[in-house]
Each structure stands twice: as C-alpha cells, then as structure tokens.
Amino acid sequence: MNARLATFALLTAAGLSLMAMVPYLANAYWLALGISLLQYTVLATAWGLFSGPTRYVSLATTAFFGVGAYTVAVLGEALPWPVVLAVAAMLGAALAVLVGLSTLRLSGVYFVIFTFGLAELIRQLVVWFEVNKSHVLGRYVFVPVTQALIYWQLLALAAAVFALGWLIARSRLGFALRIIGEDETVATHCGINTTIAKVTLFVISATVMTLVGAVMAPRWTYIEPSIAFNAMISFQVLIMALLGGAHRLWGPVLGAVPLTLLFELLSANFPNTFTIILGCIFLVIVYLLPRGVVGLIERRRETSVPVQRRLPA
C-alpha cells in the first residue's frame, strides 16, 4: 500500500512538473487554452467537492467566481498580490458561511433556487454600490500578473483542490459526509451536526472558486460587474461536473476537459447554437449518464469483476 502511495505521489509530481513546463513550450494560443482547461477543472472539481457527497445542486459558482474577480478589480492596485488573494478568499468564505447557514438547513430545492439567483443578486448590489457610493462602474485591472503566472497559480490551485479532496475523504468530516449522504436522519442521531458539516464543505469549495475568480481577473484588463458575474459559468461548471460524475474526486475533470474544448470550439464557430447544445448535454446526462462518465467506467469494471465485492460471510 505504501509503495503504491509512493508511486502515485511520484507520478503526480512528475505530471505536475511536466504541466508546469507548458508556459515555456507553448505559444499564446495554447497557453490560453491551458488556462481555460485548468480554470474549469478547478471549478468543476471544487463543485463536486461539495455537491458530490451532499447532492445539493449548486448554481452559486458564478457568485463566488465573481466575488474573487471583482475583489481584484477593486483592490488589485492598492495591495500586494498575495494580500489581494487572501482578502478575496476571506470574502468568498464569509459569503459562503452566510449563504450556507441560511439555506443548507433546508431542503435541496430552496438551495437551488437561492443559488440560482445569488450571482444576479450580488451583481445588482455591486452595481448599486458602484453607481451610488463609489461613483465608478467598471474598473481597469492593472496588476503585474502575466499569462504564465496565471497558469501556474491555477495549476497550484488544481493540485491543492485534489489534495484537499483526498484529505477530506480520509477525515472525520469525510466520514460524516458519507453518512449524511446515506441517511441524513441517521447521521443526526449519531451525533453529527449535519449543518456544520455541510457548511464547512460548502465554504471550502466556495473559497477555491473565489480564488479561481481572483486569479483569472488579470486576464481582463477591464472588469465590470456583468463580466465578473457571468451566469453562464455556473451552468457550464455544473454540467462539466455532472458529465464527469460528481460522486468521485476525479470525476469532474473527465467532464471539464472535453466540454471546455467543445465550448471553446462552439463559441468560436457556432455562437447561436451554443445554448441549444448546452441544453442537449443536460438531457444526455439526465437520461443516459445519470452517474456521469465515472459511472460508466465503474459499471464496466463491476461487470468484468462481478464477485469482487461479495465477501464470504
């Protein structure tokens, strides 16, 4: 087991350093594509981190992404970059605590409805504040962060989110969440504070999303609320994670990579059919792949080794 773990760690390290070389080898186009891939991989994995075990359908991705991006727009020039990131992370976490505590005690539908409108709500509040109080709408982002630097930060975030997921699965919190996933009533009667467990996970996932938004912000030189809080991100991330399979840590990436490529292709060549195809993928997931690509792989494995799980009595 330890040997396997060591091999795995070694392979991961090798893979990461290989991926870290990309900015030196690739031209601007491929680097931009790499950034898109990493961005959606991190977002979708972070989404699955929370929604996989709890089965809450969250549409709040845009809200957190936007908070991160807009924090950079406001503070980017005033503070050193690491401090800006820290502030963004804290704002995202605080927002997640607020949203989580007020909605996660209730049934899943309320959560969907609330997160559905959350990004738009925050956008309206930001616009109102900018127009009436600070008297600026739209800000220029002049921070000394190059494309390569964005790429490396996203790569670090990707490594962090997988490490986090791996650690959570092996922690008390992870065990508690599995029990909640099986039967929430039993979980509370076992002494699990289910609200705290769910909110904790939501905050972790939201903080990662916020950081992605902050890291991505310097890509635009000009940010206004409607750019930062673009609702489409929530839907894309949702569909990527579901296509891959949100019940496994490595599931969402299997959806994020092909769909990022597909969306890149579509929005460049067929902007009008984009939403129709997005809709069709939703239907494909619901009717054909309810457990995602991961579910497909798992089913194949189970049919090839049918007796593996049946241990002798």
Partner: peptide, 21 residues
C-alpha cells in the same frame, strides 16, 4: 430499520462511535 446500506458493518458501527460522546 435504518442502516447505512452502502457501508459495511464496521463503518455502520463506527458511525455511532466516532461522532457520539
């Protein structure tokens, strides 16, 4: 009767043990 169907017996008992007192 409510048991955690997807888990084995050991984990079922652990559920009561780990988060209890």
């Amino acid at each position: 009767v409510r048991v955690l169907d997807g888990m084995d017996c050991r984990e079922n008992v652990m559920a009561g043990l780990v988060f209890g007192r």
